[in-house]
Amino acid sequence: MVQTLKKSWTTFKTIFTGMGVTMRHLLQPSVTLRYPEERDELPSGARSKLFVHIDDCIGCKLCERACPVNCIAIETVQATKDVDLGKTSTGNPKRFWITTFNIDMSKCMYCDMCVPPCPTECISMVPEYEYSEYDRNNLLFQFSELSADKVTEVKEKAEKEQEEKQRKKKEAARKKKAQKADQTSKAKQKNSEG
């Protein structure tokens, strides 16, 4: 009898304890974030999407080399002497046309290793995470702003300049050879005379 009464008393007490707990939670504001309407602020340094300020890129390809999964593809063409591409916002002179700068976000593993090597701080993670796509190809982000025509023009120009250089070099080399040959023949003559 005493046992039963004790048990009943504990039951009652614990029921009220539990109901107190639930009442407290009922009155608390809920923790739900109504996602499309509200968003959590991302922590600083969150890695969610890569972005390139193409105006600041000097085409050094350090990020491409740093990438462990090869998701960055850069192609550059050296600028000819008659054009001045200007300087980046950090003051580095730009010497290359960036003909392609593609980042494949479907390959990216968000390691952030491409960001520190950049000398002009033009590649960075931006807090943007709602870019899912139905087609994998749409995840290939192209940052180069040159048109196809411009690219071919620039390439041809660069090739021409290169050829010119090559020719000049060859010529210079031939001249040198000729000089050398001249000298050696003269020396031989001297030897035979002596």
Binding site: T22, H25, L26, Q28, S30, V31, T32, R34
Partner: peptide
């Protein structure tokens, strides 16, 4: 609603 708020949720909104 009561169940949701007791579990710190919002319930149908």
């Amino acid at each position: 609603k009561v169940s949701a708020h007791i579990q710190d949720r919002l319930g149908p909104m």
